[in-house]
Design a protein around this nucleic acid. Structure first.
Lengths: 135, 135
DNA sequence: CGGAATCCGAGGCGATACTG
DNA sequence: CAGTATCGCCTCGGATTCCG
């Protein structure tokens, strides 16, 4: 048994840098799971400029299967990053857009992109060196 | 065939917000793959306070199997986030520490953690609402 | 147009046992 | 102490087909 912030916790808890992470109900896990997916971050970026329809997203990201497009959109919608609006046209059209939460998260994603570009060479170099040493 | 930044590219390229992402050799993918793993971010955080030995990391993160501990450390080392130092003692001891690249990345991870904590409630709420509507 | 349902292979990850 | 090797589950994600 452990005490934390006045609340008794019986679950497994990992404490790093004064922060406690529990395996279940971990705030970070909820977010990691979303950016860890293959298409999630790209989808956030795709919607950064404004609302987009399903078919427009397909055209923008040709490599994605419609199965994964649907699933990615559902996942992001479920966690509140994006909103979905159906227009009763014939045939129906559906529009997706970033929610305020999604826009807030977009800032992080952009930061991630910038960092990646800046340190891409260093990463590739480290990888090449490691692989060379292993051989 | 497409022209981009004066360089001919034959591969599939996705352009979002004026930024081009290629499926192969994508800077962001290299980074996403590392934070997407189950233990990678936690490992970065674990090493934030300073160098740590293999066994110390095992104690700090009881839930991880030694297989995944080894593999996670290897992956992060390969991409240059952490360094590995072997001390010729008996029995041998190995120390892991963040490289400058890792320390730089730590800043992003911390930002991710902070954001997660701040918006955790909103995410959980959105999820609950979505699930309720689906039922 | 915007999906859902199904099938299937590849890889992530855990459990266990063994080693210098 | 700090790993490696092997096995097997199970999820992720692609291809295909069908639907309102």
């Amino acid at each position: 048994m452990n005490k934390m912030a006045g609340k008794t916790v019986g679950e497994r808890v990992i404490v790093v840098m004064g922060m406690a992470f529990s395996r279940e109900d971990c705030p970070v896990r909820d977010v990691i799971d979303n950016i860890g997916g293959k298409w999630n971050t790209l989808m956030i970026l795709a919607l950064a400029d404004g609302p987009m329809r399903f078919s427009a997203l397909r055209r923008l990201i040709p490599d994605i299967s419609q199965r994964m497009l649907t699933q990615t959109l559902r996942d992001l919608q479920r966690d509140g990053y994006i909103g979905r609006e159906v227009f009763p046209t014939q045939p129906p059209s559906v529009e997706y857009r970033l929610t305020p939460l999604g826009q807030s998260f977009l800032v992080l994603v952009k930061g991630l992109v910038d960092w990646s570009k800046e340190h891409h060479d260093a990463i590739r170099a480290a990888r090449a060196e490691y692989d060379a040493a292993a051989a």
